[in-house]
Design a protein around this nucleic acid. Sequence first.
DNA 1: CGCCGGTTTGAGTCCATTCAAGAGGAGTGG
DNA 2: CCACTCCTCTTGAATGGACTCAAACCGGCG
Lengths: 249, 249
Amino acid sequence: MHTKTSSHPLDSLVQKLQQWRPLAAHEQDAVLALPYKLKELQAGEYIVRDGDRVTHSCLLLSGFAFRQKLVGDGGRSISAIHMRGDIVDLQNSLLGVADHSVQTLTACTMAFIPRDAVKELAFGVPNVGMAMWYDTLVDGSVFREWIANNARRGASSRIAHLLCEFGVRLEAAGLGEKLNYELPMTQEQLADCTGLTSVHVNRSLKSLEANGDITRSKRAVAIANWAKISRTADFGDAYLHLPASATSS
Amino acid sequence: MHTKTSSHPLDSLVQKLQQWRPLAAHEQDAVLALPYKLKELQAGEYIVRDGDRVTHSCLLLSGFAFRQKLVGDGGRSISAIHMRGDIVDLQNSLLGVADHSVQTLTACTMAFIPRDAVKELAFGVPNVGMAMWYDTLVDGSVFREWIANNARRGASSRIAHLLCEFGVRLEAAGLGEKLNYELPMTQEQLADCTGLTSVHVNRSLKSLEANGDITRSKRAVAIANWAKISRTADFGDAYLHLPASATSS
DNA sequence: CGCCGGTTTGAGTCCATTCAAGAGGAGTGG
DNA sequence: CCACTCCTCTTGAATGGACTCAAACCGGCG
């Protein structure tokens, strides 16, 4: 499988793409040969702003980030959360002009890659291109689930669903345990993910706690019983299209 | 620009892809050379069911279709509406196993294309592949807008937004006028698009009518004043990433 | 110590839902 | 041609879930 001793910054990109399809040694090398510039960002900084003309894709090497959109009356909608290995801005960079903003949730280190280099790689090494395309399709699948989640589930289920998703993805990315992790966002941000108010998020969180679905202390979340919370969240991980492994119990 | 006298069934695919990037004559021919099987479907038929193993992508040649997802308590969420020229199932077919269902809204004629042929074309003719990728990215952009719409706008705005989007897309696809068209769905389906109840959709529709945003008779919708409805809908068409043309007034 | 962002809690309101029933059409079969 | 059914649309009344407004609490940090 061609394991490197290394810790090349783009390793986590290779790892991510391999999640979608196996890459041969020379294909991995082609990915690692991508030109990039590293950048450290603080919590709350913008990576891309809605309306920007975008020329670089960026890869999240550490930390958490999210996509957001503002509506007319000032309300905010968060449409995705990203973590290590995620290619945060294929969307905006390939489309040219950003239709939404991307912002860091915590301090992040990112690799900026010129979008033409991404395009060349994608079509020069079809297998890599396929993996990248696959990645954007999975993003789409998650969007659809979020639409359903926000549209047709009650407040507590929505939050529980988000907590389940976060746990599963965290574990899949090798960043923590799905039953026990630190949630890197405020209740207001949680509200913007779920189309609720921060006040109501707070109440829903407490009700989940009261029902024995979770326990919390500060931002740490512990899930007592996966089967139980999956039920209240109406959660199934199929939409994440993870390779066969750490599937739910 | 290589115009054909023809009416090859896949012409509308070429047309759609050209919306995203210009294709040279031989590239157009490569698209038209795709193997396909035509199929006529009645209103309400399933094209793909959630959980299916999918082997063909399908192209909508006439009629309307939508993507849907069921949640635990039986609720339904519609995440996209499709019309002529749309490649309805790149998503599911490339991912392999469907994470949602696709169903016809009206009678449709569709072209089924083996997914391997799609892959080969995409990577054999990079420019076409890029256009297809672009297409899936635009789908993603629309998903994000729907998340924001369902999450952060009131009922009437949501409906108005959907009406605006439909009009713009219809016109962009050359299927009608954005200010005056036949809506091919029931109020219950409208409700499933917006996360509301059919009852409330009805009331919202009447309130839009009362405010002078629209007039209706049966399923026909007429928009009196684009600027006005854009305001109540908080609609801007940037997220559709249409080529510079028929932009809003 | 005092400020500040985030969390928690309460009380009252409102938007959207539920439940229920009736009206309008389109299609079917007697 | 009418009776009958099914589906969609419409309307009313009552309920309830989520929101708004507002205040207090808490921990971290300068």
